[in-house]
């Protein structure tokens, strides 16, 4: 399937993946440091396991950014 990840087209071998799996494949090493938006809707962290993505979906990982000093 083809999914738009952070605005760029990306091909995946599988036909469906859970959000949690996409985070791993896309090497988001600290899932707690991102907010996930799927097709324009923000997901709760609890839903990363149970929400699957399919061909044509758009997913964004938006990183928390503080001031670059403490964080």
């Amino acid at each position: 399937m083809n999914v738009k990840v952070n605005g760029k087209d990306q091909a995946f071998d599988k036909e469906a993946l859970f959000v949690k799996e996409v985070l791993t494949i896309c090497e988001v090493s600290q899932p707690d440091m991102v907010s996930v938006q799927l097709n324009g809707e923000f997901l709760q962290k609890e839903d990363y396991d149970g929400t699957s993505i399919k061909d044509g979906d758009e997913i964004d990982f938006l990183y928390f950014m503080g001031g670059g000093i403490l964080y």
């Binding site: 600290q30 707690d32 440091m33 907010s35 938006q37 923000f42 709760q44 938006l62 928390f64 503080g66 670059g68 000093i69 403490l70 964080y71």
Partner: peptide, 17 residues
């Protein structure tokens, strides 16, 4: 967009910042 602050343990350590 960002519901609540990230958990303290997730925040990069100073040397990573």
């Amino acid at each position: 967009v960002f519901n609540s602050p990230p958990p303290k343990g997730a925040v990069p350590t100073c040397s990573q910042a």
